[in-house]
């Protein structure tokens, strides 16, 4: 496997800001891992993402991506390896048609025309948008727009995809649509996924979750480890899993409940045990 991202003692302060936006952040991401980054607004999540592809330059510390240490010399090679899907689907379109839009990034990199046409077709097919190739991006639904944005990214053959709150402006159907596409692509293309999110369902599919608080890593753990924070999660920038809300309501009614996180299914099993021993 090996690590595709290694961040060591990363510090970042915005120009003229009084406080550090990131303080001594260190973590590794394994190739093929799905890592979620959570934290309340202003906790440093997006600043961290921008430090990973050189949109911001670290004040101190090192960022290694795909075996390269981020610097002025490597930044363009690193950006070719890291694609970011942003929050607002309307702010990332430049092409007159869906196919033009997917081709844009390839044109910028000087990919020969034959190769470009091939990659555009292939990428649109992977996200299930082939039928929309000649449509205007503006006329698509939010979920479809994000799928086109993803096609534009995978056409450039990245190793890493960063989802920067990319499902937060979508309706529940659009959110499922986008996460479904990412999950398939991750397996097919052996991608590493970093998702910056407030969405509990998106965090739940990650292998590990990094919890950021005021620019520092508060905790790194599995979804079960992190979800065990229960009702505190709201303060930490995530919704509270339903099973934790119900657990809390039962504890308030004097029922003894296990401390560890139980998902819905395991909570149902636990409650059934109580029922059976009545």
């Amino acid at each position: 496997m090996g690590n595709v991202i290694r961040v060591q003692h990363l510090n970042y302060t915005y120009p003229e800001a009084k406080h550090q936006a990131l303080t001594d952040v260190s973590f590794d991401v394994a190739k093929g891992e799905w890592l979620a980054i959570i934290g309340h607004n202003g906790s440093g999540k997006s600043t961290l993402a921008k430090n990973l592809n050189g949109l911001l330059a670290p004040e101190s510390g090192t960022v290694e991506v795909a075996g390269m240490t981020l610097s002025e010399e490597t930044v363009w090679d690193i950006r070719a390896k890291v694609g970011i899907v942003f929050q607002n689907p309307d702010n990332q379109f430049v092409g007159a048609t869906v196919a033009d839009d997917v081709a844009f990034g390839l044109e910028n990199r000087g990919v020969p025309r034959d190769e470009m046409v091939k990659r555009v077709d292939e990428s649109l097919e992977r996200v299930g948008m082939t039928a929309f190739a000649d449509r205007e991006p503006a006329r698509l639904s939010g979920g479809q727009k994000q799928r086109v944005a993803i096609a534009g990214i995978i056409a450039q053959r990245p190793e890493i995809i960063i989802l920067d709150e990319s499902t937060s402006m979508l309706d529940p159907a659009g959110r499922q649509e986008v996460l479904g596409v990412i999950r398939e692509l991750k397996d097919e293309l052996n991608l590493t996924v970093l998702s910056i999110t407030h969405d509990i369902d998106e965090a739940a599919v990650a292998h590990r979750i990094i919890l950021l608080n005021d620019g520092k890593i508060n905790e790194i753990g599995t979804p079960s480890d992190i979800f065990a924070h229960g009702t505190d999660l709201l303060r930490l920038g995530l919704d509270v899993p339903y099973s934790e809300k119900l657990k809390d309501a039962l504890i308030q009614r004097g029922v003894a409940m296990p401390k560890a996180y139980l998902d819905n299914e395991r909570l149902v099993d636990y409650l059934w045990t109580l029922h059976s021993t009545m």
Partner: peptide
């Protein structure tokens, strides 16, 4: 839900 569950799981 918690109120209705309570009598079914031994009411605390």
């Amino acid at each position: 839900l918690a109120d209705q569950l309570l009598p079914q799981i031994g009411g605390g």
